[in-house]
Write a protein that binds this DNA or RNA. Structure first.
Length: 842
RNA sequence: GCCGGGAUGGCGGAACUGGCAGACGCAAGGGACUUAAAAUCCCUCGCCCACAAGGCGUGCGGGUUCGAUUCCCGCUCCCGGCACCA
């Protein structure tokens, strides 16, 4: 008689959450006797409530943390909040609340939601970046970086977002627009700003991508490699004929030096104004510069943009052959890269070619392709491939790749050039003209200039209130701004910029290891826990957060705080959560990233209420592999809820037998199962254990792990549980207790509920992970496929130890096989052990 | 243009080292139970062929192999990143 009930998740889930919290099962301890595992997910910005994307990352991380804990690892699985940032400040402006109050309220709400999902965090180590017990260490690290020479305040052309009312880092500018405001072009402004010299670490950041981050997705390492943008080339000294001064250029093509026919400087190049000062064309040049600068960076760096140029009326001397060439300024040359000046070889560079054609500048061919002769008067595009050197004095006849090195060596001997490496990566602009961030711990003294705040005066606390409106909010807080110089005691002003919030998130993973340390940002415990063994987060941080964190780790290492080169040994970038929606423009119905404008947002709270936290977790893990986008469907969630109920119902309907079996406290051993159905079930129990373990440990492939559990339940359903049969009780109990343990990383509440019902001891969360027995996986006979010419024609049972020759003979005589071999010559018979026989006959 | 990733039934996906393509789930269809519905249970479910036997089938075209979703060569299309970086 079947009992129709539903798993009462509304009541059960909070009950188990309470049980875990009371037993403090998730508090991390490390003693060095057991292996450690640091499982971390990117901490959220406290926006107010969780979205499905959060549920996905945190479920993935939680499943892994629970699995490792049961496996006997010392697990660190912490959570915190990336709490500084503009949205809180904007909320403060719009609602007239303090950013701190608003943020803390959001945090409370989100912490509650995370707990409601059953996440196994060690909240004792919570890190909240907007509290002064955290951000004081930002300031401490910043001052140490200053002492190491890694902090610079300098005037530079910087990106300004008019909506954010602050400057941005290069990494925060996407296609010339603000990363937060896709519709807002950033301006370029000349401002005094604070930079971290990440470029000092460019080489190591690049090298370690290959050497130490093999377990990162290619997508991420490739993007970082691209962003760092290493180019090998040479610095070559050209000379200005009229003034005699040196004008160095950077080139990756020293093999084309004999083909230079002009030189180009960036319009902003500081030497330009000097060079044309008092010259008749001064006004003309200045007009041109103004025009280009006004165009803005986005337009200028568009490859399709028309080449614009203006001659300076000056001459450069090419050091390789003494040839005198005109100097131009042009829109396509950037001040920030190389030396801000280039040599131009129209025959072998497409940009130079277009420029030369437009302004009628000579073209000199110096590299000929194999078996072809280029003619400068008939060329329609630059030839940029390798070839044979011509018109290049003693280098003629040399293959151009060889000439690259030879020419640089020759120039170096004459002190006219040297090999060099350039990076695309720029220093990290970290100052922001906003309130809700870590105050930069410096003062500006009228006498002493820039003075760091002494480390024992930290933290420099944010004032509780500020005047929001035009300009930097902190600048209007007089108590904050007016200070005495700590060096000379004279009048001074506090720095009113705050730090980019990416500073906060660049080292939070270290703080978790030693979250309450009041004398240092972190100490020895960090050495024991680090590196993070699995870091789960979104691809959108491929460059930003993940590059900055790598940089910080190397800096903190060089500061002597930790022995560590890379913070995250393994990275899992989870896909987005999509749901069905209607394209507002085309009306097309398909899956989109959840967004308000499309109206396809699914609220996790509603799902938890309707189906429970476990169903949400299970569906999210089951619907797609973790690194792929996931299509959220109600039917899918119902499917998973159906599975959980089936499991639940099996327990209810067989409660008596399961309890009786559990009470005997002994799992069925391989030799004990006698009949075929029992043997098959026992075998599947162990096979499932093996599959789930491998899927979690090696591949983080939760979808297949869950489907293995489904298969085991299906098998259990069709297995006949005979009443009054002790082996039967025990086998049922073995199956069900295993199932409870195996699904517990995914559906921890249901697992506990089942475990308790069948009479399991203690909590599932503190049980050891089950092992599989190779003996139980063994079978007496296996079905193999019979192929003729690679096509399956039938099947046959073979004994595991059956003689190969006997199998082949039986296969050749098989009634399904014979029609396909009749009248043909048997060329070969291939046997793949325990898989197939393939007969080659024609 | 350069770099990275994809393409498997109506759908999400599986196939781990070159060895039976389509596990598991969703949707769909049929049936049982029910006064009825829901729930549950059973069956079918890649395509062609009325059935069967058979043939075809993992984006396309070649190749290697006894055997290819998997390896190699050449394409197409889609997604993501970078891009006048000298």
């Amino acid at each position: 008689m079947a009992i129709e009930t539903y798993y009462p998740f509304q009541e059960a889930e909070p009950r188990w959450q309470k049980a875990w919290a009371e037993r403090r099962l998730f508090e991390a301890r490390i003693d060095g006797k057991r292996p450690k595992s640091y499982i971390l997910e990117q901490f959220p910005y406290p926006s107010g409530k969780l979205h499905m994307g959060h549920v996905r990352v945190y479920t993935i991380g939680d499943a892994m943390a629970r699995f490792r804990r049961m496996q006997g690892f010392d697990v660190l699985h912490p959570m915190g909040f990336d709490a500084f940032g503009l949205p809180a400040e904007n909320a403060a402006i719009q609602r007239g609340v303090r950013p701190a109050d608003w943020t803390e309220q959001c945090i409370d709400n989100m912490r509650g939601q995370l707990n409601r999902l059953g996440m196994s965090y060690d909240w004792e180590r919570e890190v909240v970046t907007c509290r002064d017990d955290y951000y004081r260490w930002n300031q401490w690290i910043f001052i140490k970086m200053w002492e190491m020479g890694l902090v610079e305040r300098r005037k530079a052309a910087v990106n300004w977002c008019p909506k954010c009312q602050t400057v941005l880092a290069n990494e925060q500018v996407i296609n010339g627009r603000c990363w937060r405001h896709e519709d807002t072009d950033v301006d370029v402004r000349q401002l005094d700003q604070w930079f971290l010299k990440i470029t000092d670490y460019a080489d190591e950041l690049l090298k370690d991508l290959d050497d130490k981050l093999a377990a990162w997705p290619n997508l991420v390492t490739a993007q970082q490699r691209n962003w760092i943008g290493r180019s090998e080339g040479a610095l070559v000294k050209f000379k200005v004929k009229e003034t005699g001064e040196d004008l160095p250029i950077f080139t990756t093509r020293p093999d084309t030096l004999f083909g230079v026919s002009f030189m180009v400087m960036a319009p902003e190049h500081p030497k330009v104004a000097e060079l044309v000062k008092g010259k008749p064309n001064e006004a003309e040049v200045k007009n041109f510069i103004n025009k280009i600068v006004l165009e803005g960076r986005e337009k200028r760096t568009d490859e399709a943009a028309e080449k614009e140029g203006c001659p300076l009326g000056l001459t450069a001397i090419n050091p390789v052959n003494g040839r005198e060439v005109p100097i131009w300024i042009a829109n396509f040359v950037l001040m920030e890269y190389g030396t801000g000046a280039i040599m131009a070889v129209p025959a072998h560079d497409q940009r130079d070619f277009e420029f030369a054609k437009k302004f009628d500048i000579p073209i000199h061919v110096v590299i000929q392709p194999e078996g072809q002769t280029l003619d400068s008067s008939t060329m329609t595009a630059a030839y940029t491939e390798p070839g044979v050197m011509v018109n290049s004095a003693q280098f003629d006849g040399m293959p151009s790749p060889d000439a690259k090195k030879a020419i640089v060596t020759w120039l170096a001997g004459k002190k006219q050039g040297e090999p060099t490496v350039q990076y695309r990566l720029r220093d990290w602009l970290i100052s922001r003209q906003r309130f809700w961030g870590t105050p930069i711990p410096f003062i500006h003294c009228e006498h002493c200039g820039l003075v760091p705040v002494s480390v024992d005066e930290l933290p420099v606390k944010l004032p509780p209130d500020a005047k929001f409106g035009d300009g930097s909010p902190l600048a209007g807080v007089e108590d904050f701004v007016n200070v005495k110089c700590s060096k000379c005691g004279g009048k001074a002003r506090r720095e009113t910029d705050t730090m980019d919030t990416f500073f906060d998130s660049s080292w939070y993973y270290l703080r978790y290891c030693d979250a309450k340390n009041a004398t240092l940002p972190f100490n020895k415990e960090a050495q024991a826990w680090m590196p993070v063994d699995l870091y789960v987060g979104g691809k959108e941080h491929a460059i930003l957060h993940l590059l900055y964190s790598r940089f910080f780790t190397k800096v903190l290492r060089d500061m002597g705080l930790i022995k560590l080169d890379e913070p995250f040994s393994r990275l899992l970038t989870q896909g987005m959560v999509l749901s069905e929606g209607k394209d507002p423009r085309t009306g097309e119905v398909r899956f989109f990233k959840m967004s308000k404008s499309i109206g396809n947002v699914v609220d996790p709270s509603e799902i938890i209420e309707q189906y429970g936290a476990d169903a949400a977790r299970m569906f999210i893990l089951f619907a797609a592999p973790p690194d792929k986008d996931l299509e959220w469907t109600t039917a899918g969630v119902e499917g998973i809820a159906r599975f959980m109920n089936r499991l639940w119902r099996y327990v209810q309907n067989n409660l008596h037998n399961l309890r009786a079996g559990m009470a005997l406290k002994s799992e069925v051993k391989p030799g004990e199962a006698k009949n075929d159905t029992d043997k098959a079930l026992l075998r599947q129990i162990h096979e499932t254990t093996r599959r789930v373990t491998a899927d979690l440990a090696e591949r983080q492939q939760f979808n297949t792990a869950i489907s293995a559990c489904m298969e085991l339940l299906n098998a259990l359903h069709s297995w006949p549980l005979h009443e009054n049969d002790v082996l039967g009780y025990r086998l049922a109990a073995t199956s069900m207790s295993r199932l409870a343990l195996l699904i517990s990383p995914f559906a921890p509440h249901l697992a506990e509920e089942i475990w308790a019902q069948i009479g399991g001891e203690g909590l599932v969360a503190e049980q050891p992970w089950p092992a599989w027995d190779e003996e139980a996986l063994k079978v007496d006979e296996i079905e193999i496929a019979l192929q003729v010419l690679g096509k399956v024609r039938g099947h046959m049972m073979v004994g595991v130890n059956e003689d190969e020759e006997a199998i082949k003979q039986r296969a050749l005589a098989d009634e399904k096989v014979v029609p396909f071999t009749q009248g043909k010559t048997i060329r070969k018979v291939i046997y793949v052990k325990h898989k197939l026989v393939n007969i080659v006959a024609n």
